[in-house]
Design a protein around this nucleic acid. Structure first.
Lengths: 167, 167
DNA sequence: TCAAACTTTCAATAATTATTGAAAGTTTGA
DNA sequence: TCAAACTTTCAATAATTATTGAAAGTTTGA
């Protein structure tokens, strides 16, 4: 496998992985492209490389910026905008995890909380609903808090220490 | 909010959450319904409650069984099948995390590994590709291993001990 | 102020994914 | 063995989501 093939494989794998972290294919592919690029790219270059339209590129780049993963770069003497992505994997993971928590997990936790706190009318069905959603609420809240803690640790959480503690 | 409303809210929230853990809406809704049910349900009952077709019910229940989240129950004297889901949230989380790892994360890790180990032809582009995918590979592998460790801990990983360690 | 060089928006459409429901298949017990 | 009571399959279709590309909008500098 040489460069071009590896590059394409990476971009398409990362693209199809998009769903896993809650973004669409084009968005993930743009991020992947920038991630392995040696320089910031223009809309034109992204369109060309990924064979997607201008509109599509514009919208998805904007979303990536909104997520805080991509930054606009202004090059002196150039009118057009250049885009680059966060290159540090750990910081990238941190941003993604934080955003997902905020956008998806937090709202669900709120719903679980409200559902689990309905009045107990004594029927078996109501009791089961309360019991199960309470358990889920607790789990979700703890998992979310833990994830945020782990991921926000400035010192690299990837190293031995924490890792070994869990072994 | 009383029972029926809370139930519907739970089912629809859980349903739309499906994507977050990689399954479709109907599948997630069926699981949600069983999760708060006081007894095992038949295909007929699921169809009725969720207003979905027989085929849809059949296929999604089968997938849930395939994931190991739902079990067939045979009731003496009854010809039809009854379905119930894992009721323990922790066990549920364990199963889901394990399956996702196996189905989605592991294959990506393999791809990252192969992409990051292409021959270094010395060009800047190739070097960047190798460097970045290597970093991603390491991160993904460590995160996956950690997740599996945490989630497979038999004693409840949700309690103070681990939790505090991370504080 | 104006036109060139860009970016964004959004209605139309394409692509993908989920759902239906009838037909085919299977199991059970009389 | 057979028919009733179920479950599964799968082609057709509906629903959803992503993409296009042209028109509208914005920015810049002469």
């Amino acid at each position: 496998m040489e460069y071009q093939e590896a590059k394409n494989k990476f971009i398409s794998t990362w693209g199809s992985l998009g769903t896993l972290w809650g973004i669409n294919k084009a968005m993930a592919q743009i991020q992947a492209l920038l991630f392995i690029s040696t320089k910031a790219l223009t809309t034109e270059e992204i369109m060309e490389e990924l064979k997607i339209s201008r509109g599509n590129t514009s919208m998805n780049v904007r979303q990536l910026i909104d997520w805080g993963i991509v930054k606009k770069e202004l090059v002196a003497g150039e009118r057009k905008e250049f885009f680059s992505t966060e290159k540090d994997v750990q910081e990238l993971a941190r941003i993604i995890a934080t955003e997902r928590s905020r956008r998806e997990i937090k709202p669900v936790i709120k719903t679980l909380e409200s559902v689990s706190s309905i009045a107990n009318d004594g029927t078996a069905a109501t009791q089961e609903l309360i019991k199960q959603t309470k358990a889920l609420h607790e789990l979700a809240e703890t998992a979310d808090t833990m994830l945020n803690k782990v991921i926000n640790q400035k010192q690299n959480w990837l190293t031995k220490s924490l890792f070994k503690m869990l072994s």
